[in-house]
């Protein structure tokens, strides 16, 4: 083995600097030198991720489309016979169709809750270390995104913005173990806190030990101070199991989120909170009322840049 002494010195220096980085980053506030380097690096790496996602997404979506066409063939035949309008939809490309539907759901939920949203595409997922649940989306400071904004999709709460660079933003997902959000039971008005568990289910702690809660109860977000990081009334999920905890100071339950975190694609960043608390009106079973104009974003499913605040369109 040649040069072991030099090698050991180099190794020691590298390990020590990595250790120093972690220490600085772990205790640091927002303005450490490391944060500046990080945002600089993200400004460079973000666009690369965007470009890569733009190339890769249509291909994988096309493959998804092919497989679902085959499995749905019978159903499609039936629908074609039934309805001319449906036939037109089916003939439209699977890819566009899926995106339009996602967009409609998103605009629907934004309309119900009177949220003003900025649509965004998920371009990257946190690495396979397995512990962190986070994604990168293709909007950043130049689109008016800042830290601590609520992120939703057509099904409900996705997460909150934890980091932002020029053209991308990092979203911590609801399922991350460090994620906590104030929640309210839709019918009973009982309040509590929901925490991610790094798994399919979330855990709910209700503040009142007498709180009436049973499986099937839906939960929505409680507004944070100044609506940051959470706006009011976003559907979170449904109670699936109540843990019996006699004598405890709080009541615990398991919650299944409405959002499927492994299939995130189109999301919306809530850039302006609703004028008044939407209460339970955004929850799925409620009949869809016609969203009135104030505060809503006039979303057109075919236009990727619907509200004008966004300079560039998301990559298709």
């Amino acid at each position: 083995m040649r040069d072991t002494r030099r090698t050991r010195i180099v190794l020691a220096v590298l390990l020590l600097s990595a250790f120093t980085f972690i220490t600085i980053d772990a205790r640091g506030g927002d303005d450490t030198l490391l944060d500046k380097i990080r945002s600089g690096a993200q400004a460079v790496l973000g666009p690369i991720e965007r470009a890569s996602a733009a190339v890769v997404r249509p291909v994988s979506d096309f493959i998804d489309g092919l497989t679902s066409i085959n499995s749905n063939q019978e159903q499609i035949d039936q629908l074609v016979a039934e309805n001319d309008a449906l036939r037109r939809d089916i003939l439209a490309s699977e890819y566009n169709q899926a995106r339009i539907e996602e967009f409609e759901e998103l605009s629907g939920i934004a309309g119900l809750g009177q949220y003003e949203i900025l649509p965004a595409q998920v371009i990257a997922f946190e690495t396979a270390s397995g512990y962190v649940r986070a994604v990168t989306i293709d909007v950043g400071t130049r689109d008016g995104i800042t830290k601590d904004l609520t992120v939703i999709n057509g099904d409900g709460l996705v997460g909150r913005v934890v980091g932002v660079s020029t053209s991308t933003a990092d979203v911590l997902l609801l399922s991350d173990p460090t994620f906590t959000v104030g929640a309210r039971l839709a019918e009973s008005q009982e309040t509590g806190a929901i925490t991610g568990q790094g798994a399919d289910l979330l855990s709910l702690e209700l503040f009142s030990p007498q709180a009436a809660v049973e499986p099937g109860n839906p939960l929505v977000t409680r507004p944070s101070t100044n609506d940051r990081p959470f706006v009011a009334g976003v559907p979170i999920g449904e109670v699936v199991k109540v843990t019996p905890t006699p004598g405890a100071l709080t009541r615990s339950a398991s919650v299944r989120p409405y959002v499927n975190f492994t299939a995130l694609d189109l999301v919306g960043v809530v850039v302006a909170p609703p004028a008044k608390n939407p209460r339970d009106s955004v929850l799925p079973p409620s009949p869809a009322p016609s969203p009135s104009g104030t505060g809503t974003t006039p979303l057109s499913p075919l236009s990727p840049s619907p509200n004008g605040t966004r300079e560039t369109s998301p990559s298709p």
Binding site: D25, Q42, L45, A124
Partner: peptide
């Protein structure tokens, strides 16, 4: 470590 989404501390993977 620097690749977005960068949620964990910088330096962990470097180490």
């Amino acid at each position: 470590d620097f690749m977005p989404p960068g949620v964990t501390e910088v330096g962990r993977w470097a180490l």
